[in-house]
């Protein structure tokens, strides 16, 4: 209020002179311009993020099927979800995809990255090949993988045929369906991970390797004591963003195993949200599941940031 008034007063005098001798950066004109530049974006995130989340938490306490107005249920949706075997299964499957998928992808990609970063021939061709899945539509990839997993006539069964393995129902056995989804996700995500790792590797100054070599370090020692520590910020970034992505696994699941897999073995949290909201029209329950998903993501990210001191080295 007070600043407004003083600004108005300042404007009343000659504005050009005022802006010259007053070093107050937040001049009225600048504020108006900032408002013009920012307003669309701020309104957008206010509606589609902030209001959306507030609305979602409201709906999570109600029963709402889009046709009748929401009715208040209190904590019933949350109680239902936490006690519900299907939802717990979905949480557990999502956790498995994250806890196994992300580390496997990171290990694979660090190996690939180190190999590609050494001055090897055909580097460009290899890179291009590993990046391909990154630009491929996930739904399209999943359709191709479903065909590869197809029993008997699919690629995997045909490749294993000569080894005496015949007809594996990859996607209809409770023991293998989730791992089949995971394998595709690793294939799909590794291109993105590889980019980040390669960028990280290129940022490591050559002198460190030279110094280590002069000191007689073996290849493994150079990797363990130069590459890994200096790459750790990139790996931390991958662990955080990779986990957030893994928590959202959906496209692969709904294409590979439309019903959520044998014995619900591939049902994920987002699959559950989609099913409750748009197949059973239980918006309230889906909103509650979304809030739980958000909570899990926030907690996991916070824990990762907490733990970063133990293993991430910043120069």
């Amino acid at each position: 209020m007070i600043t407004e008034a003083s600004d108005l007063a300042a404007d009343a005098t000659k504005p050009a002179r005022v802006s010259k001798h007053r070093r107050d950066p937040a001049s009225r004109g600048e504020r108006i311009w900032a408002f013009n530049f920012l307003a669309p974006f701020i309104v957008g995130i206010a509606v589609f993020y902030y209001i959306a989340i507030v609305a979602s938490s409201y709906f999570s306490f109600t029963r709402y099927n889009l046709l009748k107005p929401p009715t208040w249920l209190g904590l019933d949706n949350y109680r239902f979800l936490i006690g519900n075997e299907l939802f717990r299964k979905a949480l557990w499957n999502t956790a498995k995809l994250t806890l196994v998928g992300v580390p496997v992808t990171i290990v694979l990609v660090v190996g690939l990255g180190v190999a590609l970063n050494s001055r090897i021939r055909f580097q460009g061709v290899y890179r291009l090949i590993f990046f391909l899945p990154l630009v491929t539509m996930p739904v399209a990839s999943a359709i191709v993988w479903r065909w590869m997993y197809s029993p008997e006539t699919g690629l995997f069964d045909q490749l294993l045929g000569p080894f005496g393995v015949d007809r594996v129902e990859w996607l209809s056995r409770p023991g293998s369906a989730l791992w089949a989804v995971l394998a595709m996700e690793v294939w799909r995500q590794s291109g993105l991970f590889l980019l980040i790792v390669l960028a990280g590797l290129q940022n490591i100054p050559e002198v460190y390797y030279e110094a280590a070599t002069v000191d007689g370090a073996t290849a493994w020692q150079r990797f363990r004591h130069v590459t890994l520590p200096l790459l750790s910020p990139s790996l931390f970034f991958l662990a955080v963003t990779g986990s957030i992505a893994a928590f959202q696994t959906f496209d692969a699941v709904i294409v590979l195993t439309p019903g959520g897999g044998p014995l619900n073995s591939t049902r994920t949290v987002v699959f559950d949200i989609y099913g409750s909201a748009f197949e059973s029209l239980r918006m309230g329950r889906a909103a509650a599941a979304s809030m739980l998903l958000l909570a899990v993501i926030l907690v996991v990210t916070a824990v990762q940031f907490r733990m970063q001191k133990r293993w991430v080295h910043y120069e």
């Binding site: 509606v47 589609f48 993020y49 209001i51 959306a52 989340i53 609305a55 979602s56 709906f59 889009l66 957030i244 992505a245 928590f247 959202q248 959906f250 949290v269 987002v270 949200i273 989609y274 909201a277 748009f278 918006m283 889906a286 909103a287 979304s290 809030m291 998903l293 958000l294 993501i297 926030l298 990210t301």
Partner: peptide, 15 residues
């Protein structure tokens, strides 16, 4: 950045 799209799926559809 911490809010992935599936979290806002339901409310945004309602909006």
């Amino acid at each position: 950045l911490m809010v992935p799209p599936p979290v806002t799926l339901v409310p945004n559809f309602i909006i």
